[in-house]
């Protein structure tokens, strides 16, 4: 199971990096969201997948799942959600102000 998830993380990172390196602003945007998805999965996998029962006292199990990474992921998801929303709005504003929907249009002026 870990191997499968690790492969999925690899694919997410690869696709994300490919998209970030492309020219269209929308593709770059999607690339960053894919990379953050990969990172969140990584965080989940690194603590070990399903090593025991839910971390509740009533379960009386021998082993419990480590709940900390899930708390971290929750925090991280909320942050990346906010940042992505801001990024998308910003990209839309840049597009509306003319010509900045790809990398070519967003180059700085020559000084």
């Amino acid at each position: 199971m870990e191997l499968l998830v690790a492969l999925a993380i690899g694919v997410l990172f690869t696709v994300g990096v490919y998209l970030v390196l492309s020219k269209g602003l929308l593709r770059i945007l999607l690339g960053t969201t894919l990379i953050t998805h990969g990172v969140h999965l990584l965080l989940l996998t690194m603590a070990g997948l399903k090593t025991g029962a839910s971390p509740l006292l009533g379960e009386k199990a021998e082993a419990y799942v480590d709940p900390l990474p899930q708390a971290l992921i929750l925090t991280s998801i909320v942050i990346s959600f906010g940042v992505s929303a801001f990024f998308i709005v910003l990209a839309y504003r840049a597009y509306r102000s003319g010509g900045m929907d790809d990398v070519e249009g967003s180059k700085g002026e020559r000084r």
């Binding site: 970030v20 960053t32 953050t36 990172v39 965080l43 603590a47 990474p69 990346s80 940042v83 990024f87």
Partner: peptide, 15 residues
């Protein structure tokens, strides 16, 4: 955004 993603990845490895 990219560097923050790397930061979380490093935290995951460290954990």
């Amino acid at each position: 955004v990219v560097s923050s993603s790397l930061f979380v990845a490093a935290i995951a490895y460290l954990y």
